[in-house]
Computed example of a mutant assay.
Amino acid sequence: MNEITKAACIGGGVIGAGWVARLVLNGIDVAIYDPDPEADRKVNEVMANARHAYRQMSPDGLPSEGRITYVGSIAEAVADADLIQESVPERLDLKHKVLAAIDAHARADAIVGSSTSGIKPTDMQPSMSAHPERLVVAHPFNPVYLLPLVEIVGGEKTTPECVDKAKSLYASIGMKPVAIRKEIEAFVGDRLLEAMWREALWLIKDGICTVEELDDIMRYSFGLRWAQMGMFQVYRIAGGEAGMRHFMAQFGPCLSWPWTKLMDVPEFNDELVDLIATQSDEQSGKHSIRELERIRDDNLVAIMGALGKQNGGQGWGAGELQNDYVRRLAGSVKENG
């Protein structure tokens, strides 16, 4: 398995800081370039929550943390890095500028992963005149230091060897890399989330339910099912002994019923923003964002820990992966001790 000795993170916002935390807590040195004068504070706050979560997840100890170094240029950040994670805002012109600088100064064999949530790698590769073949989309989910999935997407100039190497590198830090078979905008995860987000906005706008009621409907029902088995395996069970064929025959006609507004988008105006924001404040306003992050992290650790006890102790789904990850972390402690 390919392993990371040194990494570079370009951008230290919510996603970039999450990458820093996962890498550093795996004992990897990380160089950060972010022109935001508040980057140090923001990364440190994310690191504090990540350490709290990892101590719960791996009570037997963690490997020695990697060093965090803030640098003044992209060139300095990417020097000698095995993995370079780009996490700048979703503007193609900015992506081009940053990726061109990375490409000019990074080692030829370094993998460049973009955290973009929707831009196709082919649209980003024109700025990389030297080695476009090593660019992949490496789209994570927040919090990056806990949620293991990373969608790997290659562009027209990405080589299969670089996709395989990227999968190996991300797996080495406890992630579940899934290579997307065809290059499309927003990949798979965000396309599913966007469909639900649009329907949710209609349900709130039309007064069918509140923000809090919608969240309760998700977290007390299918959210729990999806967390451990996904969509299709859950629906296979719903088909009874006849399995998926029976489920499709029974519920397939619903696709033509007027149940959804998914193909129509509510007008995104100040009225809708105020409605959603006000209800969200009523739901969670008593907690700061950092407090909500800590609550979220504690819940995720507990859920994955519970899944890790299933299947005769071997674990199930994310729990099985977490068991392997915790063993790896504990093994690093013994090796370093």
Results as ranks from 00 to 15, higher is better:
L275W: 08
H131N: 10
R290C: 09
S284E: 07
V30R: 08
R290W: 06
V24T: 02
L255R: 15
G315L: 10
D40W: 02
M124H: 00
T116E: 09
Q56W: 00
V211R: 05
I184Q: 15
E151D: 04
I119M: 12
W197Q: 14
A101S: 13
K309I: 03
R41W: 03
T122F: 02
R41M: 12
E282D: 15
V24E: 04
E267Y: 02
R327Y: 01
I4V: 13
R294L: 13
Q228H: 03
R236D: 04
A101Y: 01
F222P: 00
D274M: 12
A171M: 08
S114E: 01
A53M: 00
R198F: 08
E45W: 05
P140M: 10
E38K: 15
E320L: 07
T122C: 10
D82L: 02
L135R: 07
A17T: 09
L62C: 06
A104F: 08
G12N: 05
T158S: 05
R294Q: 14
R219D: 01
E133Y: 02
R181H: 12
S332A: 15
S64Q: 13
S256A: 13
I237V: 09
I208A: 12
G331S: 12
I303P: 03
A166L: 09
K95R: 07
G13C: 10
L300Y: 06
D215Y: 08
N299Q: 10
A7F: 01
R107M: 03
R51L: 04
Y220L: 12
F141D: 08
G308T: 04
L62D: 02
K165V: 04
M244H: 03
E38I: 11
G72S: 12
D34V: 13
V265C: 13
E161I: 01
Q56T: 00
E212L: 09
Q125V: 00
N49G: 03
P126A: 02
R51F: 00
F187W: 11
S58W: 01
R290D: 13
T69K: 06
N49A: 09
